[in-house]
Write a protein that binds this DNA or RNA. Structure first.
Lengths: 240, 240
DNA sequence: CGCTGCTTTGATTCGTATCAATAGCAGTGG
DNA sequence: CCACTGCTATTGATACGAATCAAAGCAGCG
């Protein structure tokens, strides 16, 4: 009996590339693991001994400087892939930000399985190329956007990502933040106080409602979009 | 006669995965192109119609906001791969920052060739995974490092990258900047003035010598390294 | 019901952007 | 060969956004 047959992310995840018999083979090297919010699966710098698919929940990828400044470099949602196949050590920490369920494979087993299943590698390549584009777009935000633009952009992206879990579904005006303020700050390259101030400002402007710390209602999506793309007053200068 | 046989980056580039006969087939769909400094090969948002390998020279990947704030999201050196295979449009501009020579393939031809040559796709996957790690590390720099750390880090990285073209070779204390000050600023998320100030400061501190705008001599590598990893005075706070 | 940790709000500081002017260099043509 | 022109880089003065420092508010929990 193949546990993958009933997997809820089977079609979106990279396993979707496999035929039933291959899926069966792959399922034999993997196992499902439950994680609690805050639990860390992978540590930066450690030898890469495992990879995984997310079944449910949200995880963060993060790095930090020697002196403790932290930065979240990526978020991982259901059907996404975790870990660093093919040699090397892990470049980032992987930590659950909600309770999560993942499908874990030992890296060596996964590597050789992948190498003998080009369709699987191809899916992984497409996914990695998309992640790279996404990471690079985020660099623009980190380096060139103001605090208000950053926060608005994050809310917009979350409203899309968290709607029906993964693209295709329409954006939702009503969602639960998977992060604390600290995590939002670490994702945007800001401080917790600045995030908080931007949120209250948007609340006072009637753009969003924030009934409690983890809930967001988008009241004026066009205004939110405008905020996400409006430069800070001071950057109107000559070079444009 | 196979032009690839004499290609100077043949072994480092993804083509290195191919056997002679396959290489011959691939060479038939590609052609060598010379680019002048400043020339743009690919525009952000355009349909992805070509991909390429860099033979010689340095190119930049960049994006910008609607109002003209620019950000360089990646640099491409000899043997590196350019473009966005497998569907979609291009996520970034690609522009030569030095005169360059590249090996160009139409994307559709490349895509189908790649899909039928798993070894090639595998190399591309390894390269893309490495680029993703690199991009994410850079996010930490953009979001959490001070101006002096940023400039020092860039100089260190260049001294490694430009030494023997691609890792393995020892770092060089003596190299030519492939960028203008504006490009350094766009890479670090700073302004041209701030970059200039940081450079003069490091020159005055005896860490580097800058005989002309394009030349760098590293005089005190340990100090340069320290600067690259030393937080800005104000960030010594509690959270560490 | 008083901890404890997270969040908001306020006052102040500080780093880097902006604005502005000067200096250095490369290319052009008299 | 040297003024002229335009571009890039440096240097200085000032402004402003976000960080820091500090304190109060609020929710969950033993």
């Amino acid at each position: 009996m193949n546990q993958c047959a009933v997997c809820q992310v089977r079609n979106q995840a990279i396993c979707g590339a496999l035929m039933p018999a291959e899926l069966e083979a792959m399922s034999r090297i993997g196992r499902k693991v439950d994680m609690r919010r805050g639990e860390t699966l992978i540590w930066e710098g450690d030898e890469a001994i495992l990879v995984a698919n997310v079944i449910d929940g949200v995880l963060k990828l993060s790095t930090s400087t020697e002196d403790g400044r932290e930065m979240i470099v990526g978020m991982v949602y259901p059907a996404d892939f975790i870990g660093r196949p093919f040699g090397h050590s892990n470049a980032h920490d992987v930590t659950a930000v909600t309770d999560a369920r993942i499908c874990v494979f030992p890296r060596s087993g996964f590597d050789s399985f992948a190498r003998s299943h080009p369709e699987l590698e191809h899916k992984l390549l497409e996914r990695t190329l998309a992640e790279l584009d996404r990471a690079r777009d985020w660099m623009l935000l980190l380096a060139r956007k103001s605090a208000s633009e950053k926060v608005a952009t994050l809310l917009l992206e979350l409203s899309q990502r968290l709607a029906g879990h993964h693209e295709g579904t329409a954006a939702s005006d009503n969602f639960a933040l998977p992060f604390s303020r600290q995590q939002m700050a670490d994702l945007l390259g800001l401080t917790i106080e600045t995030v908080s101030r931007q949120l209250t400002q948007m609340r006072r402007a009637g753009i969003v409602d924030l009934p409690d710390r983890r809930t967001v209602h988008v009241l004026d999506r066009p205004a939110l979009h405008a905020t996400a793309h409006k430069q800070n007053s001071r950057i109107l200068s000559k070079k444009g």
